[in-house]
Structures are given as structure tokens and as C-alpha cells.
Design a protein around this nucleic acid. Sequence first.
DNA 1: TCTTGCGCTGAACACCGTTCAGTGAACACC
DNA 2: GGTGTTCACTGAACGGTGTTCAGCGCAAGA
Lengths: 212, 212
Amino acid sequence: MDGKSAGQATKKIPGVLTERQEEKERVRERILDAAQKMMIEDGFRALSIRKLATRVQYSAGNIYLYFENRDAIARELCLRGYAEMLAWLEKGAATASKPGAKLRGASAAYLQFALARPEMYRLIYMDDPAYLEAVFAERREDDPATRAYELLIDLAAATLGAQADRPQAVKLAESCWAAMHGIASLKLSCPTFPRTSPEILCEAALDGLLKK
Amino acid sequence: MDGKSAGQATKKIPGVLTERQEEKERVRERILDAAQKMMIEDGFRALSIRKLATRVQYSAGNIYLYFENRDAIARELCLRGYAEMLAWLEKGAATASKPGAKLRGASAAYLQFALARPEMYRLIYMDDPAYLEAVFAERREDDPATRAYELLIDLAAATLGAQADRPQAVKLAESCWAAMHGIASLKLSCPTFPRTSPEILCEAALDGLLKK
DNA sequence: TCTTGCGCTGAACACCGTTCAGTGAACACC
DNA sequence: GGTGTTCACTGAACGGTGTTCAGCGCAAGA
């Protein structure tokens, strides 16, 4: 597209290679955007490579020049999901000032995220353990799933105060996490069944875990 | 096989028709047994009709003379799973005598069941919402899933005492259920991640929900 | 202008769930 | 015993899936 790209290419300046890579990256993002939309509409399990390719006006085989396989697409979408979830958590924590209330706010936001983005949540935590494992296997410091986890632990540590050690904070954070996950995934697995509303179950669970 | 069956058949006594039906039922059970074994080994998602047919020495098409489709097999296996789960709950409740301790015991047993039969639990509560919905849509009085649900509610009602109304008991029962489900499904979704052991998380959750 | 490399396609492979015409044997009746 | 019917069962087929790959056309570089 850029007329000067040829001149740059002769000198093998990184910028030109990058332009090619950037174009490739743009297509990749376009594919991912389409995949995300399709997942939100019908769930990731209903997303087929062929339908995805049709949506972005490519042949099915071409998708494999951008992603190793279908699971790789799932993992990328998971990363987007974790990032979105982290944003919800941070926003939830910011609604309060006292440590205990911050943990409460973040926990409630976790549940709200799950109910607001059901198919995303399902992909992240319910579809295939391998996706979540893959993210934590890398264990990059800055991946949003790890940051969300550690945000909860920090909030839990602040809630417990200075006299509590880290394992206690981990225990409290994971307790909140598991409680919210239970309410969310139960609601997603069987929408009509738990009679009590998620909000009330959330309140009851956090009351139990957070009251001293 | 029975030499006298022909004589009975002439008179169309129900017993003969039943013998055919019984044979059919036996084959059905044989298929279900194989399906259950395969599910426990590799999970239900990895179970294909063709592999199942090979395992029971039939052609794939023949399976469809015993089950409407693959989902119907899933639903039957779910029913078996609910029955097994109910047995665990009852056994867990029976380990104590006081109402609160009974609810605790049943809840803990729920979690133990999930961890002891991971693929069964995954099928029941995590794979496809439609399976659980289908069971509750029928709403037969004696189906094991409903009985398990109502067992928890009864135990919760007993725990709260006479002054509590039914919605309160439902709330407590569902809180316990959601809490245990959260711990179980998180453990199954990401085995390596929650650092705190399920037992400790279970204790913390029930302490919070059950202490007055 | 020729060559190289890259993006892309279409066909193919091996699966999948599901359907269905056809087969052979067991049964019911004359 | 002969004959028609029912029944369990098979094998092939259809349309779908994920994935691979030879080959094609075009743009870039020599």
C-alpha cells in the first residue's frame, strides 16, 4: 500500500518486514474479531473453522496460516476474556475504599462479568481446562489472568490486615473466587434452576466469608 | 432361547412381548455400560457413536435403534450420575446426627463425589446445560436430581429450625450447593491452579454459611 | 525480464452424527 | 411345512467437522 515500501525493502530495514507482519497482524485481528463475535452469538463450541473462514471471506485452509489450530484461537479469545474480566475486577474494587469492601466489590464484579458475558465466561472457565491451563502454564508476569488472581489476593491481604500471612490471604481470595464461580457457573449451566437470584447468593456467600 | 416362547407368543401373552423388550433392554444397558466406561476414561466429549458401536461390537447405525441420538445417551448417563450423587449425599448426611452437621456432611459429600467422579460430574454440571435442563424439565417426582435438591433443602430447613420459612431454607441449600459446585468445578477446570486444597476451601465456605 | 517468495485456494484425508435401503433370520399364521 | 411379516442389523451414504498440502497467481527483488 505504501509506495515507499519497496525502497525500504531493498535495504531490509526492519520497518518493511514489519509492514508485512503488521498486515498479517491486522488480518489476524480481523479473524479474531470475527471469532469473538461468533462465539458471543452462539458459543465457542458452535464455532467452526469453515464458518469463521466464510465470515472473513477466506478459505478454511487460510486460517491455518494465521493460527496453529482451533485451540490457538480459543486461547487468544481466552486472553481477551481475562483482560476484560480483569477490567471488571478493577472497576469493582474501585467502587469502595475500605479493604474489605474492595474485595467484596471485586468479587461481585466477577460474578457480574460472568453473567454479562456468558459465552466468554463459559469459554474461559467451563469449556476446556486446557485453555486455562495453557495460560497459566506460560506464567507470564503480565498476563491478565495472573494479574486478576493476584489482585484478589492483594485485596484479601489488605482485608485481613498486617497480622495475616500470605497463605491466609490466598485462602480468602480463592474462597471468594470459588464462591463466585460456583454461583456463576451454576447459573450458566442451568439458568432456570437455582431459585435464589445470583445477587442474593452472592451476598450470602460474601457475608459468610468476609464477616469476622 | 426359551423353547416354550413360541407357544406363549401365539396367545400374545404380555410375557413374550416383554421378553423381546427385555432383550432389547439388556442390549440398551450393555451399550450404556460401555458408554459410561468410555466417558469415565476419556470424558463424554471424546465419546463418539462409532467408537461406542465398535466397543459393543455393533455397527454405528444400530445404536440409533436403541437411542434417539447421542444426547439421549448423555441424558441416560446423567440420570445414573444423579443417582450416584444422591447416594453420596445421603451417606454424607448420615454421618452426623445434628441438623447442621447433616447439612455439612451432605455438602462435603457433594464435593467428594465431584472429585471422585470428575468426568461424571463434568457431564452432569459442566458439559451441556441442556442435559440438566432436560432432567428438570420432566420434573418427575422421583428423579434423583430433584431428590438430591430437595434433600439439601430439607437439611437446610432442619438446620435453620422451625422459625425459618421455606425460601430461607432454599437460599441456604442453594448457597451450600453453589459453594461446593464452585470449588469442585474450579478444581476440575484448572487442577493445578487453586493453591488451597478443596477440603480447606470447603471447610471455609461451610463455616461461613453455617455458623450463626 | 526473470526468479523468488508469499498469500491464498481447492481438493483431499480422516473423522464425526445421523439416516436409510436392503438383508437375513426369527417369528406368526395357514 | 410353507408363506408372509416383523425385527435386528449392516453398509453405504450425506453433510458436517479439523487439518494438510500441492499448486496457482501475483507482487517484490535481481
